[in-house]
Every structure is written in structure tokens, then in C-alpha cells.
């Protein structure tokens, strides 16, 4: 699997480029916790040309106070995926139209898919 490393500052521009080239289908978006840094993964596909491989973008951001621009205004199909990453990893997306927790209750504290998360942090006892 070929990943393309994109600096966070160039993300919007690069994605805009790929959208114009026809990679308009959002396959998946998620994050991976590497400790010091968080890696954000975007997979885009061109449905018109099945012969073209998926584009896999990888963005590294600092894991304390992680922030990056939202792609939802460009790709509406990422709205729930970005909410999910916000919910489970605590990543803030600037410019997201509706950044709320997706799966966990609104009064939940902590972000369970981070490696340092412990169940007591979220108020779960036992």
C-alpha cells in the first residue's frame, strides 16, 4: 500500500487537486496514534476509472492539542468520519460544520482510541 505523506499546510490544496482529477469518492478517513504524533489517513477513489488506484494521504500532526483543517466542506461524505475521529481521538477539525461527538454520549470525557486512554478516565468504573 503506497501512502503519500502530505504536510498539514498543503492538505487542502492537495485534496482539491485530487478532486479535480476525479478522485471524488471518500473511501475512509481515520487516525492512528503513534504516541508523539497522530497520523490522519484519507483514502480517495476515482469511481469513473476503476483502473486507477486509490490515493492514500497521510498527514502527521502533534498529538497534544491536535488540530487540522476540515475536509467536509470539500467532501460532504466525510462529515461523520471527522466527527468520529473527533469523538474517539480528540482531533479538532477547523471549519467543520457540526463538530460534535458521534458515538459516545455528549458528557463523556476523554477519547478512548488514544493509546494512553484508561477506562477510569471516561468515568467507567470496574
Amino acid at each position: 500500500m503506497k501512502k503519500e505523506v502530505v504536510p498539514v499546510g498543503e492538505l487542502l490544496e492537495r485534496v482539491q487537486d485530487y478532486l479535480e482529477q476525479g478522485y471524488t469518492f471518500p473511501v475512509v478517513h481515520t487516525a492512528v496514534d503513534h504516541g508523539e504524533s497522530l497520523e490522519l489517513i484519507y483514502v480517495l477513489r476515482d469511481l469513473e476509472n476503476p483502473g486507477r488506484e486509490e490515493r492514500i494521504l497521510s498527514v502527521q500532526i502533534s498529538s497534544d492539542n491536535p488540530t487540522l483543517p476540515s475536509l467536509t466542506p470539500l467532501i460532504p461524505g466525510l462529515i461523520f468520519q471527522e466527527r468520529e475521529v473527533y469523538d474517539l481521538f480528540g482531533v479538532t477539525y477547523q471549519g467543520h460544520p457540526d463538530l460534535r461527538r458521534l458515538l459516545l454520549p455528549d458528557d463523556f470525557s476523554g477519547h478512548p482510541l488514544r493509546k494512553h486512554y484508561t477506562a477510569t478516565e471516561g468515568g467507567i468504573v470496574g
Binding site: 471524488t24 469518492f25 469511481l47 460532504p76 461524505g77 466525510l78
Partner: peptide, 8 residues
Amino acid sequence: DRAIRYGL
């Protein structure tokens, strides 16, 4: 077009 952009 919408179906594709919404990821359906």
C-alpha cells in the same frame, strides 16, 4: 454526483 460525494 451527490451519491458519490456523500460516499454512498
